[in-house]
Amino acid sequence: MAEINGNKALGSTGLRLKIGLAEMLKGGVIMDVMNVEQARIAEEAGATSVMALERVPAMIRAEGGVARMANPKLIKQIIETVSIPVMAKARIGHFAEAQILQELGVDFIDESEVLTPADEAHHIDKHAFTTPFVCGARNLGEALRRIAEGAAMIRTKGEAGTGDVVHAVKHMRQIVKEMKGLTVLSDQELYAAAKDLQAPYELVRMVAQSGKLPVPNFSAGGIATPADAALMMQLGAEAIFVGSGIFMKERATPLDVEHDSKEREEAVSRAKAIVIATTHYNDPKALAAASEQVTGTMKGLAAAAIEESQLLQTRGW
């Protein structure tokens, strides 16, 4: 069937397998980890997957410089440590980094605006890979352009590394609103909608018919507390990415989970509570109990206070 449909069709074998793994991650939490000990804590807390990286977004934001793919040695160590799927980030447009990540056996590649973009015009041709990709989006047009390029999962961009959920909310509301809007359009209006969205007509038509994206729709970018996770799930996210929210103490200082048992306990409590909140997102009693367990929250940075040029979400298009 794959030959008949071509590799780029949504019904092709390759894309079905990629979306299949995304389906398995629904209702769960994907946690950023910077070392083997954090990966262990994440798995032990019930994460469905870990994102292996050298610096979480909050540190990248504070330290500056060019942010690149993590060292393969670190990624391999984390793959060897946990039994759950392992994700890693490649720079926007940097298909050579993605080739390396696929070779390492990474289960999902995040073509991420958190890293410094490598191409100002082109995203990675994700159809060329066997490994599935997740990409960020701020609106429906951006989500559908990424899906056209082969993304098997979309996540809101939010504003990574802030601990401020406001932009994740904005992006999720925007995507959901635009999807709802398409469902009431007539067939002839969809051509103009596709033009306005700057997205392929076929994908626009699929969204108009189903009212949802043709791939799972997750949320990322500033989710720091159990309540944030529940908020995003109630707004329509199908799973949650938590970056800096679990292992960061101050904006640029991670909790010392390797040497300080109290700080380790704090990270464990945050991780467990966010996992519980993501499953029981509609149960305020469970959310209250989970929130009470948490013994601290990353300090965070109000997204509104960030200068336009310092925003990560405007990378990619």
């Binding site: 398995m24 991650l25 209702g27 769960g28 019930g46 994460a47 469905t48 759950i84 799927p85």
Partner: peptide
């Protein structure tokens, strides 16, 4: 269902 058995086990 399918998913991550380690996550389900925690619950």
């Amino acid at each position: 269902p399918g998913g991550e058995s380690t996550t389900m086990l925690k619950f």
